[in-house]
Design a protein around this nucleic acid. Structure first.
Lengths: 352, 352
DNA sequence: GCCCGTAGCACAAACGTTTGTTCTAAAGAA
DNA sequence: TTCTTTAGAACAAACGTTTGTGCTACGGGC
């Protein structure tokens, strides 16, 4: 069906190997005459020859493809990362196989296995957390891996992440500076490095200010909207309502917004809010949200660069890149109303 | 490095072909003894054999991979589509190579070529528009193609789109019913089928109501935020300002919001707004936006189904699936202020 | 006239599979 | 005993490349 080297060889009347060498620009190394060379080039052009990367991959043991394992393609944060990874990879001559784990560790394992079968040259992963043996296996097979956004400190491989501890401290400092003491934390998937580190940042900040931490206000099961929604609902109906919420992802914030609306609570008068992930719509919300912005594109580019360095340069060093996030202050944090601060609040049902 | 069939063969003491047949569950067809079979299965397990899909692909001329060409991975609409395509493809045993064209036709051509070299089994494309020879070539090579979201009526292949004409009519009817006569249209990439059809829907609706159309109010160059921003800026500074805006994508709307904010105009008091693509944050914006919602996930699933039917069932029929969009009415459309309707407006500089 | 050097290419193996065909030994039939 | 059948597997080719090595013929040196 498709045109092969031997089609060209037949047309020109030379052997397949000669054609191969010419098309790989190795004509001069094998003293192939100018004449033969141009005949072959012309024939390849005419037949619209397109090399079969599968055959090539088999022979060369290199597919020029990398895998990207993502927790949630539809999350704007990851979507931007994917776009940037795709772009960088393409620029360096690599195709990208994108996987979606849905934060499901079993699915992640399956995808990593599949990527191995497909013999992608390297892997960029934003891992679910919890388990890491599949990545360990991957590394033991001698294949490069770069962790992105989330990492395992125990894994001997490169990673590029944001300083989540710093980011969380910035966010919580901002809340505390505005007078908040009862702060609810809606975290992401508990085992994930980003959750863990951000939570540590929260706890340390509270401690630094000598503020008590109510364990009941530390909630959340994953990074998704639904989680943000139900956890907010629950936390708002506690006896002592928090005066502020620290959300660990853009989608969680989406759920928070939905819950607040349903409860008839207004941002920021009734509750203050700080979130991780600065999404595009943040400035245009009813109340523009103060957010921790991460250098998504930069992270993605570095990850690709690191991977390709390993693939092509044979750079075996384990590099740990940490970038600084930035707190974008908008309008979702104001001082709490005094009377609410310590009242047991069967909450006022709605101003809406 | 990696374990191959012959490693297993050597360990068990049989030939490669026998191992292959056993692992492909064809043992009984070739009367291989139960004993040999279980020996092989055990060995494969112990050695942690993972079939090399590259070799397999070469032999079988099937890679179990499909390509997805996307205009913009970071656009929430496409991000959701990608996620759903990924999910459906994975469910049917296919890996997904994702490309990003950035609405650049040359890049699209390049990506399609690359996908061909990689011998993906089939292609799902959300094409830029403008040119289609590369898809024609693809089809002539006998490879399946499914167009998604956007289509070419001249191309003999399956497609799944939304009824953009209907969606646009719904949107514009809503504006007209609220008393708007001067409506600005910020369209996407002019050649794209979605732009063309939505524009037709707009024009026909205006005509149906006997309303004049000011060509100067039909603007826009692509589906992105920047376009929405600058076009809104320009259109708002015309002598006769429109009383409403019809935006053709979520990202355009994002740009519109930004421009409105900068101009100190309030939604919906100063300008009404209807947009295509119902994004997640739409309900939580300062002014919740009325939007045309498309069944993204369904579209994606159908596209994958269509492609796989062609790949595996050999179904050669050209199927054209058209789904109905739905207008979600929120609060961004109100009747225009009377005095504004026909005054030349050196616009009031800001209420903010 | 003979040999050697070299230009210019062909040959063949290998990458890891799949699959049509062939081979071997043992069992059963005559 | 001899021939046929069959179970159980091995052999080998092919997919489309790449690449180390081998081959041939011509020209020049002596």
């Amino acid at each position: 069906m498709a045109v092969t080297l031997s089609d060209i060889a037949a047309k020109v009347g030379v052997s397949v190997s000669t054609v191969s060498r010419v098309l790989n620009r190795k004509a001069s190394d094998y003293r192939i005459s100018q004449e033969t060379e141009s005949l072959i080039l012309r024939a390849a052009e005419e037949l619209r020859y397109r090399p079969n990367q599968i055959a090539r991959g088999l022979r060369l043991k290199k597919t020029n493809t990398m895998g990207l394992v993502t927790p949630d393609v539809s999350n704007p944060f990851f979507a931007h990362i994917i776009k940037a990874v795709q772009h960088a990879a393409h620029g360096l001559g690599y195709s990208l196989v994108v996987c979606n784990t849905d934060e499901d560790i079993d699915l992640e394992v399956e995808h990593v296995n599949l990527l191995f079968r497909n013999r992608v040259d390297g892997l960029i992963a934003m891992p679910v957390g919890q388990r890491k043996e599949h990545f360990q296996d991957w590394l033991e097979k001698g294949r490069p891996l770069v962790l992105l956004d989330r990492s395992f400190s125990e894994l001997q491989t490169s990673s590029v992440v944001v300083d989540n501890y710093y980011g969380a401290r910035q966010a919580v400092e901002h809340l505390v500076a505005n007078g908040h003491r009862r702060i609810a934390v809606i975290q992401g998937l508990p085992g994930t490095s980003t959750s863990v580190t951000r939570l540590a940042g929260f706890l340390d900040t509270m401690k630094a200010h000598g503020l008590p931490v109510d364990k009941d206000l530390i909630v959340g099961g994953d990074f998704r909207r639904e989680s943000g929604y139900v956890e907010t609902k629950l936390v708002l109906n506690r006896e002592k309502r928090p005066t502020a919420i620290f959300a660990m992802s853009d989608l969680i914030t989406l759920g928070v917004l939905q819950a607040l609306e349903e409860e008839g609570l207004d941002l920021p008068e009734d509750v203050s809010l700080v979130t991780f992930d600065d999404f595009e719509f943040a400035p245009y919300l009813r109340c523009p949200v103060t957010a921790v912005r991460q250098p998504r594109e930069l992270m993605a580019e570095i990850a690709v660069k690191l991977l390709v360095d390993q693939l092509e340069g044979g750079d075996k060093d384990r590099k740990q890149i940490v970038l600084k996030p930035e707190l974008i202050v908008r309008k979702s944090v104001v001082p709490p109303r005094l009377e609410e601060n310590w009242t047991s609040a069967a909450h006022v049902s709605g101003t809406a």
